[in-house]
Structures are given as C-alpha cells and as structure tokens.
Design a protein around this nucleic acid. Structure first.
Lengths: 134, 134
DNA sequence: CTGGATCCGAGCGGATACTG
DNA sequence: CAGTATCCGCTCGGATCCAG
C-alpha cells in the first residue's frame, strides 16, 4: 500500500470483538465527542463547527467528521450553492449515543472534585517534591 | 526535568475544563476500561489482570493502574506476605462509572450491525477499488 | 466555503531486561 | 509475585499549502 497514513482511523484494529473497545475506539478520538455535542443542537455547518469547537484544526475536523459519517453517526448534506454549504447532523443512532454520553459527563461532574482531591493526595504522597506547600 | 516521558498520563493537558474531555481523557486510554471491567467483578490481583486482559503488557498494566489509582478509581491493597500479593478493587466512584460504561457498551451492541453496514456502505461508495465483489 | 495532501513533531503503547 | 527502566516504532494530531 503506497497509501501512507492519512491520520486517524483505527480500522483494522485487533478484531478483539470486545464491545467496550468497539464503542470507545469510535469515541475516544480527541474531537469526536465534542463534534457530536456541537451537532446535537441541530444541523450545523462546517465553519460553525470549526469556530465553535475552539482549538480544533481544519484537518482534524474533516477527518473526524469523515469517521463519524462512515460509522453512520452523522449525516452530511451538501447544498449545491455557491459558495458551497454543507451541513452535518446526528443520525438517530448518534442521538442515542449522545444521551449515553450525557450520563458520562454527568458522572464526571459529580466526581470532579473527588478526582481532583484524589490526584492531589496521590501526588503529595508519591512526589513530595512538588508539594505546593501552601 | 531529566524525567523523560514514562508513558501514559496526560496530566497538564489544556485545562479546557470541558467536562466531556475530562471523563474521556480518563477513560480513553487503550486499557483503562478493560481494567475497570475486570476489577468490577471484585478485588483482583496484578497477575490475574495481566493474564485476564490478554494482550496488555506489564508496562501498560502498571501505568494504567497507577493512573486509575491516582484518580481515585481503584484502590490498591498490599498484603505484606512473601511472595507479595497486591489486590486492586474499584472504588465507589468507579463503580458508578462502570454502571455508566455499561450503558455505552449496551449502545455499542445495539448498533454494532448498523455501524458495520454503514462502514461497508461508506467504503463501497468512497473506495470502490476495495469492493470485495462477492 | 469545504475540503484534500503532505510534512513533521509529540505522545502512546509494546518488547525486553532488571529488581525487591 | 509485582513492579520499574529503557529503547523504539507507530499513530495521532497540528501547520501549511493546494483545490473545487
């Protein structure tokens, strides 16, 4: 294959058939979830996403969008106008995923403080040099 | 710092403060979830994990375990015997996370076929060369 | 406006060898 | 048994340039 690595896309992983990895590989990308969240509000344009996500590069936006599209999580609608107008929207499957994701963020918010404290305690116990003293 | 990169551990990320990334960065690791799943059945020993996860290296097991421990998701109990015996167990916080993870895997299973078909369709439309024909 | 192609650095993760 | 340390490749992801 002269097909160099274009970037993302695990694809031919291990075929672990592990359902856990299945879903995570699909969502673990650095931007996948943020895109899903942004698109959950309704159809959204490429540039809207680009400016809304803040920090994402054009490359990763395109790449991640393609991946999501390939997995049937986002629909891509091209309006044959000039200049071009393309809108992305979640599919029903992605809507369900989004709901589940919400539980995750909920968990994160409910345990954010706990985790922060755990980290601080761990660091203080294992790397005393970095004690901020206070 | 002569402290080369030891491996995992995002740590000083971007401080995006984005709850979504918060939780994902914590679970996105290649093995984190599988370890949580394995430990969800009850306290489990290091070697048990190593042999149970199939494919994980000693290094990543240790590294991921440390990360989970640091975040207060797993507890580490050392039995001062000879030979040493160390057991890992989920904390209540991790138990909750595990429940949430279950929803995710559930979603994955319910949409596995859909996703597979979406991929096949996408690939057929965008990379006709690879048509398996059949 | 929407996106593809290429170049390149950084970090993740694997293999192996060594230690308490 | 339970880790730790080192080397090393591979993929992810950013910057930039080009194109429809």
């Amino acid at each position: 294959m002269s097909q160099r690595n274009t970037g993302v896309t695990p694809q031919v992983v291990n075929a672990h058939a592990c359902p856990v990895r299945e879903v995570l590989d699909r969502v673990a990308g650095k931007w996948s979830v943020q895109i899903l969240v942004a698109a959950a509000q309704g159809p959204i344009r490429f540039t809207e996403l680009e400016r809304g996500i803040e920090g994402i590069s054009r490359r990763m936006l395109t790449l991640t969008l393609r991946q999501l599209e390939r997995d049937g999580l986002v629909g891509r609608t091209v309006h044959p106008t000039v200049p071009p107008k393309v809108e992305y929207a979640l599919t029903p499957a992605a809507d369900e995923l989004y709901e589940t994701l919400l539980r995750l963020t909920d968990w994160a918010e409910r345990h954010r403080v706990y985790i922060a404290e755990s980290r601080a305690a761990y660091d203080a116990a294992h790397d005393p040099d970095r004690r901020v003293d206070a």
